[in-house]
Design a protein around this nucleic acid. Sequence first.
DNA 1: ATGGTTGTTATAGCGCAAATATAACAATAG
DNA 2: CTATTGTTATATTTGCGCTATAACAACCAT
Lengths: 117, 117
Amino acid sequence: MLMKVDAASPVPLFEQLAASVRSEVSRGALLPGDRLPSAREVAASLTINVHTVLRAYQQLRDEGLVDLRRGRGAVVTDKARQYEPISLALPTLIAEAKRLGLSSSALVALVREEYNT
Amino acid sequence: MLMKVDAASPVPLFEQLAASVRSEVSRGALLPGDRLPSAREVAASLTINVHTVLRAYQQLRDEGLVDLRRGRGAVVTDKARQYEPISLALPTLIAEAKRLGLSSSALVALVREEYNT
DNA sequence: ATGGTTGTTATAGCGCAAATATAACAATAG
DNA sequence: CTATTGTTATATTTGCGCTATAACAACCAT
């Protein structure tokens, strides 16, 4: 379970962390039942605060992607299987966007806009 | 040219404004040569600051989507045509995402992640 | 049972970027 | 010439991300 973070990015750290997990899940690298590294571990290894990691975990819990319990840690739920099909539909769109010279933020904005319609 | 904004959203106002314009462009509702409403107009009608609107406009200019000049206003450029194909590829992905119960922010995060790969 | 691990909650403070508020300036249109 | 529009400058306020401590509660292994 690799987690990297870019402090210079405008994207909040906790968002980056959550995104990282989602990405692993959609790739099938994280399966239902798998356990994420403890928040304190991640925090120490990335030299960031525990709460920042926990905030990411709690966001994933709100999405139903992980189960969060004291003493046990964060465990990937069955919902993870749903993410797989998306990882197939995504590359097509991304390729198209890049071909048109669309920046990451512009594409993201379009997706967000289209979602609320 | 309808523009709406949600002050409660974590997405900055100027981003929402720019996104709104991009959306219209990709829908074909804004064509090359069309003029956006003046920054002062938009600001007044949404009860926000002029600079916030101008920041959105300047971002669109940096993307090459509008031409910005004093006295004249913001005019959509030829680049607008490029956005059209995307508006065809998008709905498929969005529909798929919604069917899987993916939240807007989760999908957006996946897109951003996949873009940098 | 006991002790260590893990998430949960609370409180406080710092820094930065978004947004606001004024104001003067420069190019364009009519 | 005048009104309109974007540009630039400066200052202030506000909210959020992140950090820092610290205590607490559930779970696990021994």
